[in-house]
Amino acid sequence: MSTNASQNAVYARIRKNPRFAELVSKRQGFATLLSVIVLTIFYGFFMVVAFNPNLIGQRLSEGSYVTVGIAAELFMFIFFWVLTAVYVKRANGEFDAITTEIIRDASKEVK
């Protein structure tokens, strides 16, 4: 375990590395985008439940019991989960590779 002083020195170096700014803005941008998608769809759905409940029970086609509500919810369960998979894939691959590189550079320079 490094001492606090050398740890702080590494933090300072990481902050100065332009790759760090790149990592943060890329990853944060991506996470924010996905969050906005989830929140918009989810609260959009709850707005419909709240203000137009009749639409929820509307059938997608004559004689079918698959309603707008059931279809929309099933879609959310699947789509939101797919988004988590997309995020995990990119964060664990692309973003973590940049992270490792940044930490390696900063630790090297300090020593």
């Binding site: 969050s35 509500g69 059931i70 919810e73 959310m76 369960f77 939101f80 995020y87």
Partner: peptide
């Protein structure tokens, strides 16, 4: 009926948000 399903999506939808904004 479908009220229960609406409850469930609300119980579920926190998870992607936890991942995107908090897990790491």
């Amino acid at each position: 009926g479908v009220d229960g399903y609406i409850y469930m999506i609300a119980f579920f939808a926190g998870w992607p948000i936890i991942l995107f904004l908090m897990a790491e």
